[in-house]
Write a protein that binds this DNA or RNA. Sequence first.
DNA 1: TTAGCCCCAG
Length: 685
Amino acid sequence: MRRLGPSTEGFYDQLLKSCNFLASLRQIHSSLTTSGLINQALHLGAKIIIKYTTYGEPNTARSLFNSIHNDKSYSFLWNTMIRAYANNGHCVETLELYSTMRRSGISSNSYTFPFVLKACASNSLILEGKVVHGDILRTGFLSDSYVQAALVDMYAKCGQTDDGCKVFDEMSVRDLVSWTVMITAYEQAEKPEEALILFQKTQQEGLLSDSVTIVSVASAVGQLGDVLKAQAVHGYAICNAFLEDLCIQNSIVAMYARCGNVEKARLVFDMMEKRDLISWNSMLTGYIQNGQASEALLLFDEMQNSDCKPNPVTALILVSACTYLGSRQLGRKFHGYIINSNMKIDATLRNAVMDMYAKCGDLDTAENMFNDIHPSERNVSSWNVLIAGYGMHGHGRKALEFFSQMLEEGVKPDHITFTSILSACSHAGLIDEGRKCFADMTKLSVKPEVKHYACMVDMLGRAGCLYEAFDMIKQMPLPPNDSVWGALLLACRIHGNTEIGEIAANYLFQLEPEHTGYFVLMSNIYAASNKWREVGKLREDMKNKGLKKPAAFSVIEYGKDIQGFHTADRVNPYWKEVYKKVESMAVEIKMAGYMPDLSCALHDVEDEDREHMLNYHSEKLAVAFGIMNLTPEAVIQVTKNLRVCNDCHSAFRFISYIYRRKIIVRDANRFHHFEGGTCSCNDYW
DNA sequence: TTAGCCCCAG
C-alpha cells in the first residue's frame, strides 16, 4: 500500500472543508479509497461519514464505517458514526449501533454518551436513557461535564424534570451549558419562574451567558407574558452585543409577541438585517396569537416577495389564522397553495387543514379529506377534528357515530376526544349519551380532568338540570375551576336562575376577579329579571376594578376581502351605510313579529335606548353588511369572537326568513345555521 | 489525537 505524506492529508482536509455537495463528496471519497488513504487517516473517513449523513445518505456513511472500522479497540470511529446518526435524527440507528458497540467490547467514553443520550432525548426514550445512565455510572464517566449536561437534558426532554434536577444538583462543577440545560428544562416544562431564578443565579455567579442561554430566557419570559421582563431581556441582549445573532433576534420577536406587545415585536422584526424562515414564522405567529390575523395575511404577502419561502410550519400558522377568522375562502386558497407548493404535508398539517374546513363550516370537505386518509394513517387527532367539528355544528349524533367508529377501529381516544364528544352531546342536548360517554372515560383509561367536568356541568345545565349540575360540582374529586362554575353560571343565565347563579358568581369573582365575562353574565341574569339595582352594583364593581367588557368582534368574508366590525363600530369604512341598513332591518323584522330582547343590553337605561343599542352589536353589523353586498344566493357567513347574543340570535332567525338568506354564524362555542326563520341549534345553545 | 452537551417558528 502506498503511503501518503501529511501534506496530502492536509490537502484532503481542505478539500473536505470546502466541499458543499454530495457529488463532490463522492469524488473525494472515491479518490481517497483509490489512494488507500482512507484506511490510514481515519479522521478523513470520519469527516466523510459525518458529511454523508448530513447530506441524507446515512446508509452510504454506514457502509464506509463498516469498511474501515477494522481496529476493534478503537472507539473514535464508532463515536463518529453514533454522532452522525444522533445529530441527524436517526435515533433507532444510534441506539442499535451503541448496542452493537457494547456487544463488540468497544469501550464507550465521554464522547459516546452525549450523543446516545441525545437520541434518547429526541424520542423521549426514558427507559433506554436510564440504561445509558447506568452504563455511565459503571464506566465512571459521570464526572464529565458534557455527559452530565446531556443526562440532565435527556431527563428533561423525557418529561422527568425532577430527575434531571437531581443530576444537576449533584454536579460539583457547573459550566454555562449545564446551567442552560437546566434553564431550558424548566422553560420547556412550562415553569418560567424557575427558569428565570436559575438565570439570576448564573448572573450572581458571574457567568457570562451565551446566545443559547438568552434564547431560553427569552422563551421563559414569553411564557410569563411579562412585558417589563421582556424589555429587560431585550436590553441585556443589546448591552452584551447578542443582538447580532439571528436566533436571538427571532426569540425576541417571539417573546414580545407572546407578551402581547406585537407592535414591539414588529419593530424588532423590521429592524432585522437578515430574516430566516423562523423570523417570518415567529412574526406571523405573533399576529395570530394577538388576534391580528389580517396583519398576518398581509405579512405573508410580504414573505412571498422575500427570499424566504414558506415551509409546512408557515402553512400551519396560516391555516390556523383562517380557522380563527372563520374564513373558508382564504382557507381554501391556502389549502390550494399548500398543494401547489409541493411542501411535505404531514399528519399535523393535514389535520389542521381538516380542522380549518370543519371550523369554517365546510364539514363535507373535512369529512372527504378524512376519508382520503388511509385508515392506518388516521391518528387520534384526525378523529378528534371530525368529532369536534360535527359537535360544533350541533350534529351530536354524527359526532357519536364517529366516536363509536373510532373505537371500533382500535384508535385509543385521548382527553381531547372526550372534551369534543362531551361538548358535542351538550350542544345537541344528548344528555343520556353524554352521561354514558363520561362514564366510559374511566373504562377507556382516560382520567376525567376538570375540563371534562366543565363539559358535563355545561351539558346538564343547558338541559335545565341545574341541580344535578350543581351536585356534580359538589361531588367532584378535583377542585372546580372557573370554567366549571362558568358553565353553571351560563346555565343559570339560560334558565333564569338567580339563586344558583349568585352562588356560582361568588366563586367566580374570587377565582377570576379580573374576568369581565362573569360579571357580564351575572348582570345579564339580573337584567333578565329586572333587578336593575343589582345590575348597577355589578357595573359599579367592574368600574372600580377598572374592568371593561371585552371587545366583541365579528368578521365577514366579502369577495377576496374580509370585513371586521366591533360593537357600535365607527371605524369600519362602511359604518354609515351599515347603520342605516340595521336600522331599516330592525323595522322590517319587527313587523314580522321580532321582539327585541332587552336583557341583552347591559345598560340600565330607558327601554328605547337599550333597544337602539342592540342594533349595533358586531354580529348584526356584519350580517347587515353581508345582505347589502353579497349576491342574494350567497351564504352570509359571520365569525364572532364571543358568544352570539340572544337578541341577535332571534333577529337572525327573522332576517333569514324575511330576506330569504342563509346565514351562518360561528361564535366562540358553536355554529348557528339560520334558514327560513329557524336556527340549526333549535334555539338550544 | 481526531470529535462534543444547551437555543428561536408549530
